[in-house]
Structure formats: C-alpha cells, structure tokens
C-alpha cells in the first residue's frame, strides 16, 4: 500500500497547483520588497497600456497594476485563509458536539446550522458587510459566518460513524471523559474529509472576497484582486487589463487550490481514487 505522500505527490496535477500556490505565497510574503511603494500611490499617467514603463499598465487613477497585483495577493490570501480557519474551527466545534452528543443537543445545533444554510450565502455576506461596514476584519467575519455550515455537517457525519467504532467504546470503558474521547479519539479520525473540505473552502473564500470587493463592499484601504476588478470594470472596453490581470490571478489561484484539494482527497481516500 502506497503512503499518503507518495499518492499525493505522485499526482502531476498536484504539482501544478503547488507550484502556483508556492509562488503566490512567496510573492505575498515578499510584497513589500517586490513592490516597495504603496499600491494606492498615483505613479504614472492614468490608463497606460501594459508593456510600457509599467509592465501591467496603470489603472484609471494612474496606479501601478503590477504593484496592485502583488499587494493584492497578500490581502486576498490573508483574508481567505483567516476566514477559512475561523469557519473550520467553528464548524468543527458545532459538528463535533452535535455528532457526539446526539439527541436534543444534536437537534438544536443542526437546526441552528440549517438556519444559516437556508440563507443564500452570498446575499448573507452582503447583508453582514452592509451592517458591519466594510473593513478587512469584517470581511473575515462575514466570509467565515457564511462558510462554516458545510464544515459542521461534514464533521458531524464523520463523528457519527467514528463514535460507534470499537476503539471509541474501548475508550469509554477505560473511563476517559467526553471531551478527551472527542479530541483524542474521534476528531483525529475525521481529519481527512475536513482537510479536503477546508482546502476547497479557501477557494470559495477568495471568490466571495473578490465578489464583495467587486460590488464596492471590500475593505476601502486594502488593495485586493476583487477591488482591482471592481475599480476597473467600468473601463473594460478601453482598458482590458484592469479586469483581466486580477481576473486571471483569481482564476489560476482558485484552480490551483482545487487541484491541490482534489489531490488531497485522492490521497486521503485511496479507495475512491481507484474507482
């Protein structure tokens, strides 16, 4: 039987995804070195086409699109990863408690989860931002709030199957407390679907952040890819690069995350992959 790593890294699509994500991460970390000026700074003639003094041109106010792209990778990734971490933490907690306890607590928590699931998530995010006012922190809160229910359902389902297994019963007989059993015995066995769902959630979070910024509900002091598309969409006909450049960046990033996520899924569930 092949190990997880050999299955994961033996997949060429995963390599493509990892290369792009690694590059992106490096750019995000080194943003201030690669583009030392404020990405909002007016540095040149407005709407200069790519290929001149500025490799990717300038926007409607004469801001460097390349600098925006570099700093945008940082904002976009940070918001998406933080939102996903919050969503995974909260979703796991709700799902684990509901699945492990069952009965009334399960019923209450699942109805609570369904309440969030029934509201169309993007509209819900818009409402939250409108109420909280746009800022980086509120974007994280809004995206996390609309993203946790699927995590809760996945974790609950896994906990339900795992908790009836013999090693859990053995732990009960051995006298371990509920919290210890849940954390030490049950949750580690739900990790593989959680990792897969969570990694794909980052892609969704990037899309939600971009869509909110596109609608003008992004953080006004933060250069993100969605902000760049939102600010450039009015000029699509005369300055194609304003939407195309960040648009392609989003496309590639979401694609890369999906490739890696699928690779994880195949590696963690080898029987499914062989089908």
């Amino acid at each position: 039987m092949k190990t997880f790593w050999s299955r994961f890294l033996g997949n060429p699509r995963v390599y493509l995804g990892l290369i792009w994500l690694g590059l992106l991460l490096a750019v995000a970390i080194a943003a201030n070195v690669l583009a030392p000026t404020d990405p909002f700074a007016i540095v040149g003639k407005p709407m200069a086409a790519p290929g001149g003094e500025f490799w990717l041109g300038t926007d409607s106010l004469g801001r460097n699109v390349l600098a925006g792209l570099i700093h945008g990778s940082r904002a976009t990734l940070l918001i998406a990863v933080l939102a996903t971490l919050f969503a995974v933490a909260f979703g796991t907690f709700i799902g684990a408690v509901a699945g492990y306890h069952g009965g009334l607590i399960d019923n209450v928590l699942m109805r609570f989860t369904e309440f969030f699931q029934t509201i169309p998530s993007f509209l819900f995010a818009i409402v939250l931002i409108a109420v909280l006012s746009p800022s980086a922190l509120n974007l994280v809160v809004a995206i996390a709030t609309v993203s946790w229910p699927p995590i809760a359902r996945v974790v609950r389902g896994e906990v339900l199957t795992v908790k009836s297994r013999e090693f859990v019963q053995a732990a009960v007989v051995a006298g371990q407390g509920d919290a210890a059993i849940l954390i030490k015995q049950v949750l580690p066995n739900t990790l593989s679907p959680l990792i897969v769902t969570g990694s794909l959630l980052i892609a969704t979070a990037i899309l939600v952040e971009s869509a909110l910024s596109f609608l003008g509900l992004g953080a006004p002091n933060l250069m993100s890819w969605g902000f760049m598309i939102g600010a450039g969409r009015s000029f699509m006909r005369e300055a194609w690069w304003l939407v195309t450049v960040p648009g392609v960046a989003i496309l590639l990033t979401v694609l890369a995350i999906n490739l890696v996520g699928e690779g994880l899924n195949d590696a963690l569930n080898p029987r499914l992959a062989d089908l």
């Binding site: 404020d38 909002f40 700074a41 007016i42 409607s60 106010l61 409108a130 006012s133 746009p134 003008g216 006004p220 002091n221 939102g230 600010a231 009015s234």
Partner: peptide, 28 residues
C-alpha cells in the same frame, strides 16, 4: 457610487504628500 471612492483615494494620496495620513471609510 464608485466615483466617490476614487475621489477619496485621490484625496488620500494628495494628503499623503503633505504628511497627513488618511484612512478611508465607506458605509451605506
């Protein structure tokens, strides 16, 4: 609308030149 956001960004850059740091806030 968006022209007001762009105007806010210009003011932010203009005032940075005279040493005044501006943070933008956009509400409904």
């Amino acid at each position: 609308g968006e022209e007001w956001q762009r105007f806010g960004e210009i003011v932010q850059q203009n005032l940075a030149q005279i040493g005044v740091k501006v943070t933008l806030r956009y509400e409904d």
